[in-house]
């Protein structure tokens, strides 16, 4: 295997619960799956820089983000991250457009807003540009937050259930858009999803997390055939014998 694009070897203490993660993934999108409370969101926060491991090393795209042995930890603002959290976390005092423009790199204000508007258009949200989050539906909020993460042109894209709030008819377009974005050159993308269509479309490196540990990992197509693990068996059950 070539040099891994993502490497996490870390021990985390989370107020009683402990996590010990050993994860290595090749280039291409990485999908985290696993039961609620397994630690998927915690892993995204670790990558974003929202929490530090007790001990360990995190490398993404050839850059060392954290190395406790060397005493180094890049702050979140130096990681080039686009993060879509589970609860969207749009900034309530800003319009949809200004939320997206918040992280657009470089240029003056009007250039940044222009690029933000282009992202809203790509997600079919141009008509909502001047709305505050309070006046958006759950699905609209999720798309605006996704646009905000993508507009940052991140080297490290972190998406926590990016289509969970979208209705089924809105998902295919976002799924197709993300299929390209997850494989953007020079980008490491980690996405939490349990949507079978997304897994089949994105063909990610699949990582199963349970109780704070990586219990299975490999190409999606490979793990889809495994019937020995209850979580994977249930996740891929709709495929029947096609997998």
């Amino acid at each position: 295997m070539a040099e891994p694009a993502l490497e996490i070897r870390a021990r985390l203490a989370l107020g009683g619960a402990a996590m010990a993660v050993d994860l290595s993934a090749p280039a291409g999108p990485v999908a985290l799956v696993g039961p609620n409370g397994a630690g998927k969101t915690t892993l995204l926060r670790l990558l974003a820089g929202g929490l530090r491991p007790e001990a360990g090393r995190v490398v993404a795209g050839g850059r060392v983000l954290v190395d406790t042995a060397a005493g180094t930890a890049l702050p979140p603002e130096a990681r080039g991250v686009g993060y879509l959290p589970q609860h969207h976390e749009l900034f309530p005092h800003l319009t949809a457009l200004d939320n997206v423009a918040f992280g657009v790199p470089g240029g003056d204000r009007s250039a940044r807003r222009g690029r933000a508007r282009a992202w809203l258009e790509r997600l079919g949200l141009a008509h909502l540009a001047d709305r505050r989050p309070r006046r958006l539906s759950g699905g609209e909020r999720q798309k605006v937050a996704l646009a905000r993460a993508l507009a940052a042109e991140p080297r490290l894209l972190l998406l926590d259930e990016p289509t969970a709030a979208l209705d089924v008819t809105a998902r295919p377009a976002v799924r197709a858009l993300l299929a390209a974005e997850l494989r953007a050159p020079g980008r490491v993308a980690v996405v939490v999803t349990h949507d079978l269509r997304e897994l089949l479309a994105w063909r990610p490196h699949l990582v199963l997390v349970e109780a704070g540990r990586v219990v299975a990992a490999g190409p999606c197509a490979e793990l889809a055939r495994r019937r020995d693990h209850p979580f994977l068996a249930e996740l891929f059950a709709p495929l029947g014998d096609r997998a």
Binding site: R45, A48, G49, G50, P75, P76, E77, R79, V81, G82, Y83, P85, Q86, H87, E89, F91, F102, G103, P105, R148, A152, P154
Partner: peptide, 14 residues
């Protein structure tokens, strides 16, 4: 939320 602050940090703010 902590996540809202984290998003702002990831988007370039100290």
């Amino acid at each position: 939320s902590e996540d809202a602050l984290l998003v702002a940090r990831t988007l370039g703010r100290g």
